[in-house]
Design a protein around this nucleic acid. Structure first.
Length: 640
RNA sequence: GCUGGCGUAGCUCAACGGUAGAGCACCGCAUUUGUAAUGCGGUGGUUGGGGGUUCAAGUCCCUUCGCCAGCUCCA
């Protein structure tokens, strides 16, 4: 018996144990039927070749529904495999799932695909799509499927069959390409019109480096050409914003071959931006009741034995031998902050204690994982550990979350995605700390997020063993998410180090520790910030805030007065009096993304004014010198 | 780490196994400039390092270093 609630609220019952989706779709009427690319039944994504069972509400999906892209791309990946099957008859097929922004298919072929191969495959994909490729779904018993794929030498498919529970598997045929596949697929290949192959890459079978290396083709597909174009534009835009390019072009920072991968050099201009970040943070620490400390970069291995890092984190640490003693370059700041907390016995009256550090740490990341400033081996965290009594948890989490959001907003991010990572109820044994403590901590985090009215996702089982956490992601100027701030409980280290406070009854109690980092890593934040602003930092962050451009040598004395007036008020100003035409120097300032240009010639000198040009906006008008200076100073003070 | 691609002037990139080049930047000269590139000339290279094949190597082979992309989002 199948009971289906249709979109109009009516309910239809079927006698059979399961009903083809296509039969249900028939009930929608001619027009809706033609628009339906797939359905959600009881919240489950289904295609028109599958069946539904039990009771549920049917929601037909049209091409503008988010989930429809999944169907489209899944089928597109089969068409891609179809093309590869024709052009490379010896290819072995692995998997070809849809992913967030497209799809891929993994192939085992003799030689890696060349860019020319990719072009040929794409052409073939487009040719195939001109025809209407019929799509069929069948259910085979496993023996038949094994026989079929064994005959074709498709060893990966055989592997997959072995892992599928049950006695049967589903087989989808798209055109001439027969594939083991769970589905779901789009209702018709005619809907696949806009496909673009993007790149090739090696990928291990099942992500396991002991398994054969397959050749993966990444691609994407959309219903509408405008969507595909927008996506490709976004890729191009992302490339233009690449912080590695901009870091070099704007002379902000770089990674040097001579020093090694993952080690960042901050050039003078980049150092100015970093200085602004740190100054802002330090001022906030003062007003928000944090105490700044410094801790050594290396420490005896024993300290890391106590913390547990030596056991669990060894592969990620740089170690060295000093007169027979093993030393560790710190990969984290927590033990150092704990040692500072433990220098004395704290009373409950003194809590919370918030210890902060711009802590530079080094981690042995795999060479292949390194990426510009975003994934490095040496970086500075804006790290802090909050030591508090259990009853202070809610207000401390609130305090930290408020700090995080106000900091991120100050740096130009106003779209957030919050994730709350909590215990895995199925695996309670792996966690440090008691059930009670976890419950308390999780609700402190959840309440803080709710109080702020933030949308958040509860990630069941995503918490690390030592405590639950909140991660704050920002969405940047071109819609990409970046994980930045984190607020994490730690039930592990305080116990390992026996960290206490004296409670009101005079007894020693274990202290609660909250770890938080807002920028996360200064290096990574700088990389993200550079991409977010495409190198055009707001005035308060710009390495050079204003450049003075004397039109000719006659204007030089007044230009110098302008420069000095700005410099005296703390504006980062440069003079460009090179013997180049004014157009050339204006262009140079624009290319270097300087927010303001003060053009002064004889006219301005006579009247004591400056002709102001703003980055990207051209001339904005002529102003008295004093008014211009005040305007910039005010803008900087306001953090714009 | 593994697989593939790449490594040529400060930067971006050319050069069928046959004389290492261009644009920008930099330097010099001329120009004295009015809001996104003035003209002419010049400096600059052990082609990432090492080894090999060849009459001849940026180009082919080996090795080493570095960079880039990817390495389950599970049929």
């Amino acid at each position: 018996m199948v009971r289906v609630t249709l979109p109009d609220g009516s309910t239809r019952a079927f006698e059979q144990p399961e009903v083809p989706v296509s039969d249900v779709v028939q009930l929608l009427g001619e027009r809706a039927k033609g628009d339906t690319v797939g359905v959600l039944f009881g919240g489950q994504l289904r295609d028109v070749y599958q069946t539904v069972a039990g009771e549920g509400t049917l929601r037909p999906l049209k091409d503008d529904d988010e989930q429809s892209l999944y169907l489209l791309r899944h089928t597109a990946s089969h068409v891609l495999a179809h093309a590869v099957q024709e052009l490379f008859p010896d290819a072995k097929f692995a998997i070809g799932p849809p992913i967030d922004e497209g799809f891929y298919y993994d192939f085992d072929v003799e030689k890696p695909f060349t860019p020319e191969d990719l072009a040929r495959i794409e052409t073939r994909v487009h040719e195939l799509l001109k025809k209407d490729l019929p799509i069929h779904r069948e259910v085979w018993d496993k023996a038949r499927a094994r026989e079929h794929f064994a005959k074709l030498g498709q060893r990966y498919k055989l592997d997959l069959i072995d892992d599928i529970p049950g006695d049967t598997v589903s087989i989808y045929t798209v055109g001439n390409f027969v594939d083991l596949c769970a589905g779901p697929h789009i209702d018709s290949s005619r809907r696949i019109k806009h496909v673009k192959l993007l790149s090739t890459a090696g990928a291990y079978w099942r992500g396991d480096s002991k398994q054969p290396m397959l050749q993966r083709i990444y691609a994407t597909a959309f219903f509408k050409k405008s969507d595909l174009d927008a996506y490709l534009d976004r890729l191009a835009e992302a490339e233009k914003r690449d912080h590695r390019r901009l870091g070099k072009a704007l002379d902000l920072f770089d990674v040097k071959d001579e020093a090694g991968g993952g080690l960042v050099f901050w050039h003078p201009k980049g150092a100015i931006v970093r200085e602004q970040m740190e100054q802002y943070l330090k001022q906030e620490y003062r007003t928000r009741g944090y105490q700044l400390v410094f801790t050594p970069h290396i420490a005896k291995a024993d300290l890391w034995k106590t913390s547990g890092h030596l056991t669990y984190y060894r592969d990620n640490m740089f170690m060295m031998d000093v007169e027979g003693q093993e030393y560790v370059v710190k990969p984290m700041n927590c033990p150092g902050h704990i040692l500072i907390y433990k220098r004395k016995l704290y009373s409950y009256r003194e809590l919370p204690v918030r210890i902060a550090e711009m802590g530079t740490v080094y981690r042995r990341e795999l060479s292949g994982a390194l990426h510009g400033l975003l994934r490095v081996r040496g970086f500075t965290q804006d790290d802090a550990h909050i030591f508090c009594a259990p009853e202070q948890l809610p207000s401390e989490v609130d305090h930290a979350l408020d700090f995080a959001l106000s900091l991120l907003q100050r740096f130009g991010f106003d779209r957030f995605a919050v994730e709350l990572s909590v215990r895995d109820p199925a695996n309670p044994g792996k966690y440090a700390g008691t059930d009670e403590e976890w419950t308390m901590a999780e609700s402190a985090l959840e309440d803080a997020v709710k109080r702020r009215g933030l949308a958040y996702k509860r990630m069941e089982g995503e918490a690390v063993f030592y405590g639950p956490k909140i991660d704050v992601k920002v969405i940047d100027a071109i819609g990409r998410p970046w994980q930045l701030s984190t607020i994490q409980f730690d039930f592990n280290l305080p116990r390992r180090f026996d960290v206490n406070y004296v409670a009101s009854g005079g007894e020693r109690r274990p202290v609660f520790m909250v770890h938080r980092a807002l920028f996360g890593s200064i290096e990574r934040f700088m990389g993200i910030l550079t991409e977010h602003y495409a190198g055009a930092f707001p005035t308060w962050l710009s390495p050079v805030q204003c450049v003075v451009l004397p039109v000719s040598a006659e204007a030089l004395p007044f230009a110098e007065r302008v420069r000095l007036a700005l410099a005296e008020r703390g504006v980062r100003v440069e003079m460009d009096a090179r013997e180049e035409k004014i157009g050339y120097r204006v262009r140079d300032a624009e290319v270097h993304k300087v927010p303001y240009m003060a053009v002064v010639g004889e006219r301005e000198a006579k009247e004591g004014v400056v002709a102001v040009r703003a980055r990207g906006k051209g001339m904005v008008g002529t102003k008295p010198l004093e008014a211009f200076v005040t305007e910039i100073v005010d803008e900087v003070a306001a953090g714009r």
